[in-house]
Structure formats: C-alpha cells, structure tokens
Amino acid sequence: MNKAIIEVINLKKYFEVGDMVVQALKGVNLKIMKGEFVAIMGASGSGKSTMLNILGCLDKPTAGEYKLDGISVADLSRNQLAELRNEKLGFVFQSYNLLTRTSALENVELPLFYNDRIKSKERKERAIAALESVGLADRMHHMPNQLSGGQQQRVAIARSLVNDPVVILADEATGNLDTKTSYEIMELFQRLNSDKGKTIVFVTHEADIARLTSRNIIFRDGWVIKEQIVEDRLIASEMLKSLPVGEHEV
C-alpha cells in the first residue's frame, strides 16, 4: 500500500489563447498511493480538469515531472502515451461516452481491441468478468439506449476496469445522475476500492460526493491549496438506506 502510483512534481501547464498565456497549473505537487480513493475538488477554472487530463496522459505538461506507476510521462510520444492509456489507465466520463448501437459487452471489450496481446477469447472473458463486477452480467447484450443512466455509467466503469488499470480516473462521473443513482455509483466505486484495492482518482465539485472518498485534494487558481484525509468518511451503501423511499422506485 505504500507504492506511489501517481507522483507529480512542480507541474506547470500553460495554454496560449491568442496573445495571452493562461496559466492553468502553476506548480502542482501531489502523490497518490496505491489503493487510495482520492477526490480532486475545485471550482471551475481551478485547474482540476487540466490536472485530470495530464494525469490521464491525454495532455502533456508544459513543465515539471509526472510519474505514472514509476514511468516518467513527459518524454513519451503520442503513440507511447496511447499505449500507456491502454494498459495503465481506466477512464470514466461524466457523459459515459459509450458507443451507440453497440452492446454493453462490445463497449466493455473496446479497450482490449487496441491491445494486440489479448486474443478474442480472453477479450470476451475479461469483458464479461468486468460486467459481472459492476452487476450487469444480465444486460451485456443490451444497447446503451436500452439502459438507464446509472446502468450506462456502470458499463463505462466496467470498460475502465477491463484492462486492469493501475488507476481509474473519473471525471464528474456522477454529474449527470440523480442523488440515488449517484450514491449507487459511488457505492460501486467504494467497493472496487475496498474489495479489489483499485486506486481511484475522482474529480468532482460536489462536497458530499467528496466525503465518500478517502482523501481530498483541493485546487484553486492552478495551485493545490489543501490536502486532507477525510475524517468522517461516509459509506455510500448506508447513505442509500437513509434516502427517502420514493414512489417510483424501479
């Protein structure tokens, strides 16, 4: 549990917008250990999304160092970054980003298509296992439009798990969901974190969601202004029980 999965040292990211240079990250230092469930918080414009893009190897820093699972990312080419994403990272997006008209199973299989080492039989087995772990084994042949928002997000989580990543990066993963479904998704994340030891980095601006994680990192104006261990951590499954029971529950 003491291995650093993510290590960021004095990381800077500048954007050029016309003649102006926007300093999105002004020198960030952070360290995320294996098995942590970290929330990155901050208002819009605080640099948290830029941070997530860099952590996700989707964007390169202007200066500073970023080590993912011991690999220094700054010097890698676009193709090497793509391989890194394929093997070490799992993404969960706010808007699910599932392929339409494509079964849940095929959506989950997708990352493995880009890995030559995995044969079609193993690909399918791993996708089914991932769907089982998010409780959707019985829906694997459903299309995204036949699934509820929560179910679609579960498919997306299964997709992020299928390549057995060292870290799952979630970008406002509950942002499009109602309270109850949000807690259900958070329960799943908590379970993946505690039972399977998955390292999860969760970007959110909702304080109550952040209280479900183990550590919060708060950004403002391109700096990390606060890091805190969540003292009174909430358990999503208990939160669910405390919700008032609606009449239209499915």
Partner: peptide
Amino acid sequence: TREIGLRMSIGGKGRD
C-alpha cells in the same frame, strides 16, 4: 469526432 476521442482515450493510436 467524439467516438474518435473516446477511442483515443482508451488507447487507440492516431494511426489506428
């Protein structure tokens, strides 16, 4: 384009 973005984020290379 979004599909392309997704494919790239899960490890598709430009040439793929």
